[in-house]
Simulated assay, not measured.
Amino acid sequence: MNASRPHATTRSPLQLAALVVGAVFLLVGVLGFIPGVTTNVDELEFAGHQSDAMLLGIFEVSILHNVVHLLFGVAGIALSRTWAGARNFLIGGGVVYLLLWLYGMVIPHDSEANFVPLNAADNWLHLFLGLGMVALGFVLGRGAVRTRV
């Protein structure tokens, strides 16, 4: 065994939650481009409500929507490396999803302002994601154990 190798660090529950959430976003971003998982993938638009592609036949997606999921996933995985990064990802990302939920509730689905695109299923998902991520960030972030190396 190499004595100069740094000891392995374990992830806190907060960091593990951020890692899992990030991995799920990454997976969803990839699945948004796969025919069969996404219906009407040949009608995938870059952005806007004109995209008729539906992830799992339920959630309206576009290229931009999928790319955002991919980037969000990469951010979650990268930020899960530290306790503060994981907490910021979960709480900050949760707030972003709550704002998306609010946006989806205010903007008509067939409006030109609906550039994401969003439908009713997306709105409910964004509400539950936002609440869940914020809750994970606060609940798992309460009992931080700080150690000096």
Results as ranks from 00 to 15, higher is better:
residue 10 T to N: 11
residue 11 R to M: 13
residue 11 R to A: 12
residue 11 R to W: 08
residue 11 R to P: 00
residue 13 P to F: 09
residue 14 L to I: 09
residue 14 L to R: 05
residue 15 Q to N: 02
residue 16 L to G: 06
residue 16 L to E: 12
residue 17 A to P: 00
residue 18 A to L: 06
residue 18 A to W: 03
residue 19 L to F: 11
residue 20 V to T: 05
residue 21 V to S: 00
residue 21 V to W: 00
residue 22 G to F: 02
residue 23 A to D: 00
residue 23 A to H: 01
residue 23 A to N: 01
residue 26 L to A: 07
residue 26 L to R: 05
residue 26 L to F: 12
residue 26 L to D: 01
residue 29 G to E: 02
residue 29 G to N: 03
residue 30 V to E: 01
residue 31 L to H: 04
residue 32 G to T: 11
residue 32 G to R: 09
residue 32 G to A: 05
residue 33 F to I: 12
residue 33 F to A: 05
residue 34 I to K: 09
residue 35 P to E: 10
residue 36 G to I: 10
residue 37 V to T: 12
residue 37 V to S: 03
residue 38 T to W: 06
residue 38 T to I: 11
residue 39 T to A: 09
residue 39 T to H: 07
residue 39 T to L: 11
residue 40 N to V: 06
residue 41 V to P: 00
residue 43 E to Y: 13
residue 44 L to P: 01
residue 44 L to A: 04
residue 44 L to G: 01
residue 45 E to N: 11
residue 46 F to Y: 15
residue 46 F to S: 09
residue 46 F to R: 14
residue 46 F to P: 03
residue 47 A to T: 11
residue 47 A to Q: 13
residue 47 A to W: 14
residue 47 A to D: 07
residue 48 G to R: 07
residue 48 G to M: 08
residue 48 G to C: 04
residue 48 G to V: 08
residue 48 G to W: 08
residue 48 G to E: 03
residue 49 H to C: 12
residue 50 Q to I: 13
residue 50 Q to G: 15
residue 51 S to Y: 04
residue 51 S to H: 07
residue 51 S to A: 06
residue 52 D to R: 15
residue 52 D to P: 01
residue 52 D to T: 14
residue 53 A to V: 08
residue 53 A to M: 10
residue 54 M to W: 10
residue 55 L to I: 11
residue 55 L to C: 05
residue 56 L to F: 15
residue 56 L to E: 05
residue 57 G to R: 13
residue 57 G to Y: 10
residue 59 F to Q: 09
residue 59 F to D: 03
residue 61 V to S: 02
residue 63 I to T: 15
residue 63 I to E: 11
residue 63 I to M: 13
residue 65 H to S: 06
residue 66 N to P: 01
residue 67 V to L: 14
residue 68 V to K: 04
residue 69 H to Y: 12
residue 70 L to T: 08
residue 71 L to V: 15
residue 73 G to S: 03
residue 73 G to T: 07
residue 74 V to A: 06
residue 74 V to Y: 01
residue 75 A to K: 02
residue 76 G to N: 02
residue 76 G to T: 07
residue 76 G to M: 03
residue 80 S to E: 02
residue 80 S to L: 06
residue 80 S to D: 02
residue 83 W to N: 11
residue 85 G to I: 08
residue 85 G to Q: 04
residue 86 A to S: 06
residue 86 A to E: 03
residue 87 R to K: 15
residue 88 N to Y: 12
residue 90 L to G: 00
residue 91 I to G: 00
residue 92 G to L: 04
residue 93 G to Q: 06
residue 94 G to V: 11
residue 95 V to D: 01
residue 96 V to D: 00
residue 96 V to T: 09
residue 97 Y to H: 14
residue 97 Y to Q: 12
residue 97 Y to P: 01
residue 98 L to F: 04
residue 98 L to Q: 04
residue 98 L to K: 07
residue 98 L to G: 01
residue 100 L to S: 05
residue 100 L to H: 05
residue 100 L to F: 15
residue 101 W to C: 14
residue 101 W to D: 07
residue 102 L to H: 02
residue 102 L to M: 09
residue 103 Y to W: 14
residue 105 M to C: 13
residue 106 V to T: 12
residue 106 V to N: 04
residue 106 V to H: 04
residue 108 P to G: 07
residue 109 H to K: 15
residue 110 D to H: 14
residue 111 S to G: 04
residue 112 E to Y: 14
residue 113 A to D: 14
